[in-house]
Design a protein around this nucleic acid. Structure first.
Lengths: 354, 354
DNA sequence: GTTAGCACTCCGGCCATGAGAGTGCTAACG
DNA sequence: CGTTAGCACTCTCATGGCCGGAGTGCTAAC
C-alpha cells in the first residue's frame, strides 16, 4: 500500500503512467514545459490539477521529469522517454493513408541502385518530419565477378571491379610503364580467368602465387593487390555508405535553432563507423531499437535520439534504416514508420536478391 | 566638371571607389551597417567623416549602397558588390600558405574516383568558410566499353555499364523468363561484341537492328534498350552529380540564422539542372564567374552568391567547382580560391585523362 | 571642395512593472 | 487516506519608458 509514495524502481500505477504519457505527448507537441492545469484541461484526467501536481512531483522524484526552473512546468527526462517508449506509449501501427503514401513512393523507384536508399531516407524524413537515415544492404562478404581496366591516359587507368553481389567499385590506378589498351585488356582477361568467383581471401592467396611467378606481368600483380585491398575493405565494413535526408527538419526544431550542436551530429553521421558499430546490436534485437539522448555512446549524439531497424537477412546482407530527431520526438509514430519501411525494404531485398 | 554630382552610370572617381571598397570590406568583416566615422577611423582616408558622408550619399543615389533605416550606417547593394567585384576589388592571388595547404590536401587523395570531388568541395569550404561545390568532370559524350550482367535473384539482374571514359553506371533490371547466370553471360558476351566502343547513337541503331532479328534473344534487346537509355541520359546531362560541403558554414552566418531561406537553397542545389544550366555560360567565359544575389535566375538563390569556374577542356570533359555563400562574402578571397582550385583540377584532369 | 558643428532620428540596452503560469504547501473534505 | 481547494510564493516574459550612442543630413564657415 501507499504504493505511489515509495520512490524506487517499482512499476508505476496506471494513473502515474497516464500522466507521464500526457506530459510527454503534450511536450512533444508544444516544445514547452507542461503545467498541471494544461494537462487537466486537454487530457480528460478526471482529477484536479492539485492531484496532478502531486503525481508530477513524484514522477520528478523518480527521475522521469524535470523542472527547468522553480515555477515552470515539467519536461520529460531521457529516463522518462525511455519508460514511455518501453511500456507506456501506444503501439500504433502506421495509419493506412501513410502506409499508402510510402508504398506509393516506393513504387515510383527506378531500379537504379542507389536511388533506393536515397528514397528510403527521403520517405522517412517526409513522414516523420525529422531526419531519415538509410544504408545500402551490404553482403557479409563478397566474391569477385569481373574486373575491367580502361586506359584514361598514358599513365593512368580506371579499374572497375564488379562484385558477384551486384556491387561496383571503381578507382584510378597509376601505371608506370606505358601499357596500351590492348595490353590492359590482356591483363584484365588474365585476371578475370584467375580470380573470377574468388573471395577476398582467395584473391589474396592467388596474389601471393602470382607474385612468385616470373612470367606474370608486373601490372597484373599490382592490380590484384588493389582488387584484394578493395575487397578486404568491403568485407571489413559493416556499413557501406550512409544516406541521410531532411537534416534540416531537425534543424528547424526550436531546440536546435542554435545550430552549433547539430554540426557535430552531422559530422558524426557521415562517419560510417558509428552506424556500423550499432548494426550488430540491432541485428540481434530483431525489432526497431530506440536510442534516446544520453544513451548514445557518442557525446555528439547526446542531444538527439535515434530510431533504427535493420533490414535484409542477418547471414547474408544487412542494411539499416532509421530516424534521427530531437529527444523530444513523436516516438510511436517514428517507430511505426521505421518498422513499416524496414518491412518494405525486407520485401524488396527478398524479391531482388533471392 | 562637378563630375561627382552627375548621377548616372559614369565611372566613379578614385575616392568614391576607395570609399565603396572600404565600406564593402568593413561590412563583409563585421556584418553590421558601416558608418562614416568608422571608415575614417579604420581606413586611412585622409578626409573627414563629413566628406565621407557626402560621398556615401552619392553612392547611395547611384544605387551602390543602402540604408536599413534613417540613422544607421550603409550596407552594400547587389549592384555595389557587382561593381566591387568587377573593377574595384584587389586582384589577389591566394596566399602561399593557403596554396600550400590546398595542394597538400589534394596530395592526400586516394585515387578512388568520387573522393576527388568531395575533397575539392571540402577544401573550398575549409578555406573560404562558406559552402564548397564541385561536380565531376563529365565527358561531352560517352562510348560503351563493357557491360556485365549479374544475376541477383531468379527474376532480377544487376546491369553494370562501364564507359570508355572510366565512368560506371549500374541498375537492376527485372527478367521475366528465368535466365541462369550462364545464359546471362551469353547475352552479355553477345552484346559486348555488338556494342563495344559504340556511342549512344550507334547503340540505338544497333538496337533497331537487333529488334528485327528473330534470332536475337529477347533479353538482349531489353538490355540494349536500358544501355541506350543510360547512355543517352548520360550524354544529355551537363552535370553528372553535385557534391557540396560546408553548407553549415553558411548557415551559421548571422543573415541565415533564421534558416527557412537556406532550405530552399539546399533543395535547389541538389537539382543538377541548375548548375547544369550555368555550365555553358561558364565555359565560354573561361575565368571565374560571380553571381551575386538577385542576379541569380532562381528565386531561391536571391539571397546568396555563387563564385564558379569550370575545369577540364570544353570539347572533352567539363566540371564545375565553386563557392556558395552569403552575398556578404569575401569575394576576392573566394575568387582566388576558386581560381586556384580549378587550376589544380585542370592539372589533375590533364594528367589523368590524356 | 572640404569641414566643423548641430539638430534630429532611430536603435538597442536597461530597468521597473505587472500579468500570468506554475509550483508547493496546508488544511479541509468525503 | 487520498483528494482537493485555496493561497502564498517564485519565476518568466512581455511591456513601456528612458536614455545613451551612433549615425545621418544640413548649413554655414573655411
Amino acid at each position: 500500500m501507499a504504493r505511489r509514495t515509495e520512490r524506487p524502481a517499482g512499476p508505476l500505477d496506471p494513473r502515474s503512467q497516464q500522466i507521464l504519457r500526457a506530459t510527454i505527448e503534450e511536450y512533444v507537441l508544444t516544445a514547452e514545459p507542461v503545467g498541471s492545469q494544461t494537462l487537466v484541461d486537454r487530457y480528460g484526467l478526471g482529477v484536479s490539477s492539485a492531484t496532478v501536481r502531486n503525481v508530477m512531483a513524484e514522477l520528478e522524484e523518480a527521475g522521469y521529469l524535470t523542472h527547468p526552473h522553480t515555477s515552470a512546468g515539467r519536461v520529460p527526462t531521457d529516463a522518462g522517454y525511455r519508460l514511455y517508449v518501453e511500456s507506456i506509449a501506444p503501439r500504433i501501427s502506421l495509419a493506412p493513408v501513410e502506409r499508402l503514401m510510402i508504398r506509393h513512393q516506393f513504387g515510383q523507384v527506378e531500379f537504379a541502385s542507389e536511388q533506393w536508399f536515397r528514397l528510403a531516407a527521403a520517405t522517412i524524413a517526409g513522414t516523420t518530419h525529422a531526419a531519415g537515415l538509410a544504408t545500402p544492404a551490404k553482403p557479409r562478404s563478397c566474391k569477385l565477378r569481373h574486373i575491367d581496366l580502361v586506359a584514361t591516359s598514358t599513365h593512368t587507368a580506371s579499374l572497375v571491379v564488379v562484385l558477384a553481389e551486384g556491387g561496383v567499385k571503381q578507382e584510378l590506378i597509376p601505371i608506370e610503364d606505358a601499357y596500351d589498351q590492348a595490353e590492359l585488356d590482356d591483363v584484365a582477361r588474365l585476371l578475370n580467368n584467375e580470380l573470377a568467383d574468388k573471395s577476398a581471401r582467395q584473391v589474396a592467396s592467388r596474389m601471393a602465387a602470382l607474385a612468385q611467378d616470373p612470367d606474370a606481368p608486373p601490372l597484373a600483380v599490382r592490380v590484384t593487390q588493389r582488387v584484394e585491398k578493395l575487397m578486404r575493405e568491403f568485407d571489413a565494413a559493416t556499413v557501406e555508405d550512409v544516406f541521410s535526408d531532411g537534416l534540416l527538419n531537425v534543424m528547424s526544431e526550436p531546440e536546435f535553432s542554435q545550430s552549433e550542436k547539430l554540426r557535430r551530429v552531422f559530422a558524426a553521421l557521415q562517419n560510417r563507423d558509428y552506424l556500423g558499430s550499432l548494426v550488430a546490436r540491432l541485428a540481434t534485437a530483431g525489432d526497431v531499437q530506440v536510442l534516446i539522448g544520453g544513451e548514445n555512446e557518442r557525446a555528439e549524439m547526446r542531444d538527439v535520439s535515434l530510431v533504427l531497424a535493420t533490414y535484409g537477412q542477418p547471414g547474408r546482407a544487412l542494411g539499416v534504416v532509421g530516424v534521427l530527431g530531437p529527444t523530444r520526438m513523436a516516438y510511436p509514430h517514428a517507430i511505426g514508420t521505421v518498422r513499416y519501411v524496414s518491412g518494405l525494404m525486407n520485401e524488396l531485398v527478398e524479391q531482388l536478391y533471392r
